[in-house]
């Protein structure tokens, strides 16, 4: 491989240390904020971090366009993105694992079933059901309970079904965008990518609708016991990832439309964003099955 003698090792760079300052301020500021103090540090940190990442990606794009990136270096980015997505998979696995553990083991035990059912002594009268409409607290303390269950839950066959169709469709459209990019059909690429972004935004819109319904009409909140906890944490982190994915795709769209970036055989930025998009889609399918359908 001829490229191996020219692996591009960048010169010294200010980006990482500034990114560290941004991330450090964000983390420290977030802790400060959550603990009831001001949010300024968090805001400042987020702006610094976002700005540095903007500059950093810009730098990488410039280097690629200047021809500094060998095939081998591009492969490093491919490995990097692939394993980053795997790490995200494991993050969701923790929350899915929590859901399965609660439903399969912890709740039935609390309800008096099986090997460890003796814990029911502490919550007499509690019955394990899923979705959990009456928490152990509510079963014992009635109206005085601090953690009461929800009044109703989201029906999977309305908004969630629409969202499933939207997101599955968006995986198809982003694939078509890729196909047209490889055929060097810029116009079709832009339109298909635009369609994907629109589907992503529509998904987020319905997700917000769903949350409003849950909070305002169903009494389904983060504080409504373990059902609301797992429901909002899983769908919420997914929604955050859809938001990030939509931003990624939007950036790719802007790069294509306004800056004419990407070549038919050199467009890993777009490809990475599309991988990420497929990943959030797969997570959604898992959510639809395990949280919405099997959870109702």
């Amino acid at each position: 491989m001829a490229s191996e003698s020219s692996y591009y090792v960048p010169e010294q760079s200010r980006l990482p240390i500034f990114a560290t300052v941004g991330l450090g301020l964000t983390a420290y500021g977030a802790a400060n904020w959550v603990n009831g103090n001001s949010s300024y540090l968090f805001m400042l940190g987020s702006i610094v971090l976002a700005g540095v990442l903007w500059a950093w990606f810009g730098q990488v794009i410039k280097e690629n366009m200047a021809g500094l990136n060998s095939d081998q270096l591009k492969k490093s980015y491919v490995w990097g993105m692939g394993w980053f997505i795997f790490s995200e998979v494991m993050f969701f696995a923790a929350f899915f694992g929590a859901l399965f553990y609660i439903r399969t083991f912890a709740l039935p035990w609390l309800g008096g079933e099986g090997d460890k059912g003796s814990t029911n002594m502490l919550w007499q009268g509690f019955e394990a059901t899923w979705p959990l409409m009456t928490t152990p607290d509510a079963a014992v303390n009635g109206d005085a309970a601090k953690i009461a269950g929800p009044n109703a839950i989201i029906d999977p066959w309305h908004l969630p079904l629409i969202n499933t169709i939207l997101l599955l469709a968006s995986s198809v459209t982003v694939h078509f965008a890729h196909v047209f990019l490889k055929k060097d059909n810029r116009k079709a690429f832009n339109w298909w990518l635009f369609a994907t972004i629109a589907l992503g935004v529509a998904f987020l819109f319905f997700q917000v609708e769903e949350y409003l319904e849950a909070y305002q009409e169903l009494g389904l909140t983060l504080e409504s016991g373990i059902y609301g906890t797992t429901f909002f944490m899983l769908t919420g982190f997914h929604g955050a990832h859809v938001t990030l994915g939509t931003i990624m795709l939007l950036v790719m769209w802007c790069r294509s439309v306004f800056a004419g970036h990407f070549k038919k055989d050199d467009h890993f930025g777009f490809e990475a964003a599309s991988w990420y998009w497929h990943f959030v889609d797969v997570v959604w399918v898992g959510l639809f099955i395990f949280v919405y359908v099997l959870g109702s």
Binding site: A98, I102, A106, W123, T135, P136, I147, I226
Partner: peptide, 13 residues
């Protein structure tokens, strides 16, 4: 934020 992951009162563990 009031979730119940580790609180049996809310159905967690």
């Amino acid at each position: 934020f009031g979730t119940s992951f580790f609180s049996a009162a809310g159905g967690g563990d």
